[in-house]
């Protein structure tokens, strides 16, 4: 009991760090993950390029969402998860015991599969991240900047104090993106951001992703291959927890090296 108390109160030591080659934002090395006794990710090695869009594709249950959630340690919220190996972000090991996942999540924003705005007003949704991170910013400025970046400003500028749940699904998802931008992240993770949206809303989000990569590094998980081909620069193909192939999107879709990849891409699967 006392040990637990001491351990909880211990201030962290400095984090171990390496230097990544230029142009590489993040990198996993020999990364594996277990849910209880099930091995969900097997020895993943992948490099995420800075200011590019990297798509992760693969059939259901291949571990693509799990891998994505590893980049901001969201898997920590799930009981009985165990990991092995490292993920480096800007040279810092985010799975080091002494790393604080709260700091990582500030650098790595995330957009979820289902739009999940807080039941607050639109403006407060955006400002929330600044508030919890004690950021010294003007609320109105942040709200305007983020909504403009998320291409939502024109639609909602007159109703900023309305409840966010009154927006349509597509607007809610763009609000979630805007909300993620407010904490000034460097990497944005998107977990099938369009799967709950109609084609028009999807097109808007895809345009937005194009805009975002000027300033941010984007990693997107999608089950929609056309979408991966449209928005990404690099593509990773996963199958049963393994990374089968990783390369430029053009190459993966036109000349896949692996037979398994080709099968999936051409739809001759299973």
């Amino acid at each position: 009991m006392i040990n637990k108390v001491l351990e909880l109160l211990k201030e962290e030591k400095a984090c171990q760090r390496i230097s990544l080659p230029p142009g590489i934002k993040a990198k996993t090395s020999g990364f594996s993950l277990w849910y209880g006794s099930t091995k969900a990710l097997k020895d993943i090695n992948i490099e995420i390029k800075e200011n590019k869009v990297t798509a992760i594709i693969g059939p259901s249950g291949c571990g693509k969402s799990t891998l994505l959630r590893c980049f901001n340690r969201m898997n920590d919220t799930i009981v009985s998860v165990r990991t092995e190996g490292n993920i480096w972000l800007d040279g810092y090991d985010i799975y080091d015991d002494v790393t604080d996942c709260v700091d990582i999540r500030r650098k790595v924003g995330m957009v979820f599969q289902k739009p999940n705005p807080f039941p607050f007003s639109i403006a407060n949704n955006i400002y929330y991240g600044c508030q919890v991170n004690d950021m010294d910013v003007e609320k109105d400025e942040v709200v305007e900047r983020c909504l403009k970046q998320a291409a939502l400003w024109e639609e909602v500028k007159d109703r900023l104090s309305e409840n966010a749940l009154s927006l349509s699904g597509g607007q809610q998802q763009r609000l979630c993106i805007a909300r993620a931008l407010a904490i000034e992240p460097e990497v944005i993770l998107m977990d099938e951001p369009c799967s709950a949206l109609d084609p028009i809303a999807t097109a808007k989000i895809e345009d937005l992703i194009h805009e975002l990569k000027k300033d941010y590094t984007v990693v997107i998980v999608t089950h929609n291959m056309q979408q991966a081909a449209r928005v990404s620069d690099y593509t990773a193909y996963m199958y049963l927890g393994e990374l089968i192939e990783f390369g430029k999107t053009k190459q993966i879709f036109e000349k896949p090296r692996e037979e398994n990849t080709e099968k999936y891409i051409t739809g001759r699967f299973g």
Binding site: R105, M110, Y128, V132, C176, A180, A182
Partner: peptide
């Protein structure tokens, strides 16, 4: 999902509980 969204924005657990 609301907890996830808050945590992903860099909020601590206590901030998430208190505000969301």
């Amino acid at each position: 999902e609301l907890r996830d969204a808050s945590l992903a924005l860099g909020a601590t657990k206590w901030q998430t509980i208190k505000k969301v």
